[in-house]
Nucleic acid binder design. Structure first.
Lengths: 140, 140
DNA sequence: ATCTAGATGCGAACCGTTCGCAGGTACATC
DNA sequence: GATGTACCTGCGAACGGTTCGCATCTAGAT
């Protein structure tokens, strides 16, 4: 799945009646460019190299809107700030509780567990919203 | 698995060379008594009905030590404060992202996933340290 | 009874995030 | 192109949860 371009995302947003401001352009551009797990602060830093007036709180608010619109996800890695990425590259995270290393996993891994939990507890897992914690090879 | 009594826990701690102070007694007693998912603040409140001078920061420090000694676990439910419980009743949590309801699961549920992740990524899941987020029956 | 490493109480600091408000800007409308 | 207004922004202050520094105290070894 190729990652969406900034222009595509902007077109989608405009189509949904969302105002395209320079701050939003900048945040989207940053997300598309970095394409990893970045914190709001990371995004602010990137964005501010071009447009220093864009405030961290605007970045938070923009990310919040983008998430409501289904364009980005945020994940809590179990320590420190949440990280954000484009919903298009949704995936799972393993996080080492010792060295904090993050390992990306393909999205499908948890599906069996999700089915099991659904049938037994009538609960729909949304696995991309949480990280799987544990110990990596080096730390265990 | 019967939950350990406060006296048993204290004996274990003493045996490991840990000082038994009145604050620690009180925190352990509170944990044994409530036996659910309580926040540090909850514990402080309980403890302070008997011993008002025990400070929230002491509760945090005590919980930290108890966790290092393997007596308690803490879990981040994805929003708000972490919750603590005795390691003896280790279990899994489903948390509804909408209504915040918490469902307890037996510990073994994630084992297959854990084995899978271990063999593919050489990573040891510690599933009791994170909640599984999603949507409950009523909210989905 | 004495000593000392370690635990405590207290408040201030911290970090990540949210909020309130006054001013600014996108875009629908003419 | 000018105008209006709902929405967005910048800013700083506040927030909730947790950690820290420091002076004092105390458990338990001697």
């Amino acid at each position: 799945m190729a990652s969406e371009s900034a222009t595509t995302i902007i077109a989608t947003l405009r189509h949904q009646g969302v105002r395209i401001t320079s701050a939003r352009r900048a945040v989207i551009a940053a997300l598309v460019r970095t394409d990893g797990h970045v914190t709001a602060e990371d995004i602010a830093t990137v964005v501010q190299t071009q447009a220093p007036e864009i405030h961290l709180s605007t970045v938070y608010r923009t990310l919040e809107s983008l998430e409501e619109l289904g364009v980005v996800d945020h994940v809590h890695l179990g320590h420190g700030s949440a990280v954000y990425h484009l919903a298009a590259n949704r995936h799972q995270h393993l996080v080492c509780e010792n060295c904090k290393k993050v390992i990306h996993l393909p999205g499908g891994l948890v599906e069996e567990l999700a089915r099991d939990i659904d049938s037994r507890y009538h609960f729909t897992l949304r696995p991309h919203h949480f990280a799987l914690l544990g110990l990596c090879e080096d730390c265990r």
